[in-house]
């Protein structure tokens, strides 16, 4: 029997499945942190979580509200510096990171700096924070985001954080570490990946009840479709139970 769940629960459950045991993941607050905590409770008990402000491998008692708050070092292995965490990413020790943004383009580049133009911004946003760094330096970048035409745009107003830049080989040509880049984009409609030849976004997995045309209708650019298009396995009772009972019992994230 299919379980009842909302979009946020679906995205968190699907995202958590991509996190392998024994790996390292750099997260922020919110859904990414919930996905990592869920993975730890399910298939990846030895997944280590790190926070750019300096927390490494905490046993998270609840959702942190800041990337630097006390919860990020609760029963942790290390309380260190941003330099140390970011250097760890730059050395090639960090497998995954999760990011978000106001806009994402076909190559997985992200904008979290401004809407408008740099000379005449209509809306100022917070800026890169550590997003540019983590997407430059971690092996695989993942994004959890609702999907609509306002967010999924052909051209960003500002390229804050690198995806595949202008396509295949562009990251390496710019000097970014080889074999890094966007990995999976997890939305309320689908899981999107990137074509190996063009590095453009493609649909890889459709969520239950979602048709390809629904995904296209909510994307502001042409989407490729994977030859091996699959259907997302709905969140299981076990996943939802862990998520609701242990990961986010007060529904701070899944209640949004």
């Amino acid at each position: 029997m299919a379980a009842d769940y909302n979009d946020m629960e679906l995205m968190i459950c699907v995202a958590s499945r991509f996190l392998e045991d024994g790996k390292l993941v750099a997260v922020g607050t919110g859904a990414p942190c919930a996905a990592a905590m869920l993975a730890q409770r399910r298939h990846a008990p030895n997944l280590m979580v790190l926070f750019e402000a300096g927390g490494f491998a905490p046993i998270l008692p609840s959702m942190p509200i800041s990337v630097g708050d006390s919860r990020t070092t609760h029963k942790a292995l290390l309380a260190t510096s941003m330099d140390d965490i970011m250097s760890m990413c730059q050395r090639g020790m960090v497998d995954y990171t999760f990011l978000g943004g106001a806009q994402i383009d076909p190559f997985g580049n992200l904008n979290s700096t401004l809407i408008g133009t740099p000379e005449h911004p209509k809306v100022m946003l917070p800026g890169s924070g550590g997003a540019n760094d983590l997407a430059s330096l971690c092996w695989h970048t993942m994004v959890i985001t609702p999907q609509d035409k306002r967010r999924f745009v052909e051209h960003l107003d500002f390229l804050t954080t690198p995806g595949y830049l202008t396509g295949n080989g562009a990251r390496e040509a710019a000097g970014l570490p080889a074999e890094t880049g966007p990995y999976k984009i997890i939305t309320n409609l689908a899981v999107l990946g990137f074509d190996e030849d063009t590095r453009r976004m493609r649909v890889e997995q459709l969520h239950p009840g979602v048709r390809l045309e629904d995904v296209r209708a909510n994307t502001g650019f042409d989407l490729l479709v994977s030859d091996a298009l699959t259907k997302t396995v709905p969140p299981t009772e076990q996943e939802l139970s862990e998520l609701r009972t242990h990961v986010d019992p007060y529904r701070y994230i899944i209640g949004r």
Binding site: Q90, T113, P118, F158, L159, A174, G175
Partner: peptide, 13 residues
């Protein structure tokens, strides 16, 4: 020297 910021508007600005 470092390997962040490369290829982006963040570097441009």
């Amino acid at each position: 020297p470092a390997r962040n910021m490369l290829g982006t508007d963040t570097l441009e600005y």
